[in-house]
Design a binder for these strands. Structure first.
Lengths: 253, 253
DNA sequence: CAGTGGTCTAGACCACCAA
DNA sequence: TGGTGGTCTAGACCACTGT
């Protein structure tokens, strides 16, 4: 990581810095390696620490750097490809807990049920390479579950927690036939999600909303949040070639 | 937007500020309205301007605020749902230009051709409600096009620009049968893309990589970038109910 | 303990826009 | 021209990590 010139250009310093740093981590560093600390880098480039941090913020958002308090700033591993589809979800998800509660105004609207109606909420977490990379809240009207004796659980007080969660998921698996419709957008993790992802609040996440249809009607709703820094969501007929990491192509031409 | 307390809490000031501001814009402001300027807000909340700006940065990332230099900070309109699928793309995209050039090392690898082989690059832009919300670069090996006389253009020097672009797209439409496979991840717009999107460099974008298959083989590659602040990508069998904006549900429970 | 990144401050100047 | 957001500075203190 050579010294710097930072010739006066019309572009902001932090953006120029980002470019310089990006070239450096691509050519002179390898995954997991720590780069020089912020105070040294800012001195070396002759900028304020805040300006340097602005450049590091960008690179962290792009998933190229990971910052660990008390440790340093590391070159991030390439993003992991996470398949987003009902089929192959099974393995990697772990049920955290499950609860049944009356639907709030907004949830009822989104689920297409009456406000106050009982709704099961299953909370799951996806672990990839020993790291929690996604959380999911799955909402399903309790009425749909009650109508199915084979699934209704034994005890008089309805089961709670992981057991009910797994039951709900089993049911959903048999229910869904009409397909799913999805939306992806950018969001930030709030308190609970952030805690599950072991990240500070405000962490950028890719929010995937999935509507499950059955009998031409909305049957369930899932809201999943994936760590934007470490995840690349993959869709579609997984046949074909492995999906090429994008960064390679985008900077090529 | 009432005055503020900012009671001492273990969470960072900027995050607490974000929450307070979010409540305010949800309850006391409407789309397009300008909120008080940064200097006034920072004074009102008793924090430095930089701290306030950190909170506004978060809300802008979430697509809740839009900042315009020289104007002020406005409450953003809800994100527009943008369908991502070959079928219904036709209308909203405009070909910007097209060129044919030898494939770089990395592009060749991603396309599955030999380095240096001629590749058509079609640059498109998607306009939604009068605003450019996405750019796309579509790569297709020139050899695939040459084999099809009906498409080959008349002039001896191969056509360039928009005309060739449209020809490539027409060809691709007839070619693709085996389906597509996609990946979505977070990125930032660099110089060219940022200019097309009429945004500063570093603007967060949702990067969609699409591989088009034909004859069990990779036929074309498209890299699309959508403005993360204004776009919600929608997938799947567009039948069903309209996709519910997520923000409603995520903050509900 | 020393070293790291995370937060916050007070102030300055610039680029842009409308009147 | 006055007001807005965008950039940058120099410094301080805190929270966390390893030794």
């Amino acid at each position: 990581m050579g010294t710097a010139q930072l010739t006066a250009v019309p572009e902001p310093k932090y953006w120029h810095l980002r470019t310089v740093l990006l070239r450096a981590i691509d050519s002179e560093f390898t995954t997991g390696q720590v780069i020089p600390n912020e105070r040294e880098l800012s001195a070396r480039f002759g900028v304020a620490r805040a300006t340097l941090r602005q450049a590091l913020d960008q690179l962290e958002l792009e998933g190229r750097l990971v910052r660990r308090r008390g440790i340093g700033t590391l070159v991030a591993a390439p993003r992991v490809g996470v398949p987003v589809s009902r089929r192959e979800e099974g393995e990697a998800w772990q049920v955290v807990d499950c609860a049944t509660a009356p639907a709030s105004e907004r949830l009822a609207g989104a689920l297409g049920v009456a406000p106050g109606e009982a709704v099961h909420t299953v909370r799951r977490v996806r672990v990839e390479q020993g790291q929690t990379v996604a959380t999911e809240s799955l909402y399903l009207a309790a009425a749909l579950l009650e109508q199915v004796p084979e699934i209704r659980l034994s005890g008089a007080p309805v089961a709670e927690g992981e057991e009910l969660g797994r039951a709900v998921l089993r049911r959903l698996e048999r229910l869904t036939v009409d397909g799913e419709s999805r939306a992806v957008e950018l969001g930030v993790a709030e308190a609970e999600e952030a805690a599950l992802l072991q990240r500070p609040p405000g962490t950028p996440v890719l929010v995937v909303t999935t509507q499950y249809a059955a009998g031409g009607r909305l049957a369930a709703l899932a809201v999943s949040t994936y760590r934007a820094d470490t995840c690349r969501l993959t869709f579609g007929e997984t046949g074909l070639v492995e999906v090429t990491p994008v960064s390679a192509v985008r900077t090529a031409s």
